[in-house]
Amino acid sequence: MTPRARQTLMLVAGAGLLAFFVWGAVGLPDFGHYRGPYGLVINHVAGSERQVTNAVASLVFDYRGYDTLGEELILFVSVVGVATLLRETRGEELPAGRDDATEVPDTSDALRVFGVVVVGVTLLIGLYIVAHGNLTPGGGFQGGVILGSAVLLVYLTGELVMVRWVEPGTLLEILHSAGAAGLVLLGLGGLIAGGAFFHNFLYTGTEGGINSGGIIELGNATVGLEVMGATILMASELLEQLLVVRRGSPA
């Protein structure tokens, strides 16, 4: 099929799909008049039952902990997938010696100074976001990405030097797996202590306190660990490919 024919076909099909979509959307409740009772109930009980002020966090790590477990395992498996795919090709093309990974970085001093300042601030923000996931917007997923990007900033400012200590990856893999295992253990803890998977079996603290929420706060911490490990692992695997390509073709 020529590109032009495919484009025409896609225009027709897309218009048809959109027409059906609009037809279906007209039957939805009017915008701003959502009627589902589940969310309303959660909004009312999250504060009194779990002492948290972030209703979304109470759903993610407590009331609907199952979903998050599945989601986290998807993340875990896909990181393993990325590593498997990329390491296979890397092994074929890369000789064992890795000395050239310590090439003199060609980043400017200004960028490096900026990096040193920003890395600390970013780490602090990441920890803050993870720790306050039960109270304010944020939590393990968002904070984990920020923590991961703080480490990647080191790479950006230091260029190749960084690859050396991230590349063995064992520490990262342990971090990543510990995060995933932690959430499973939290769920199992509920099963042992309260007879239901993801039963909130810990002291839920006082409302609005940093220690409130019981397993919600711990869940945030484990997910933060895993997401941080996953972000760095994925990015460093892809960056490693960049090095392979650069080395393969002397440009």
């Binding site: 959502y34 309303l40 209703a55 759903l59 979903d67 989601e71 997923f141």
Partner: peptide, 10 residues
Amino acid sequence: DPVVQSLTLT
């Protein structure tokens, strides 16, 4: 509604 927000996070 917080339910759809947690779904969006997923």
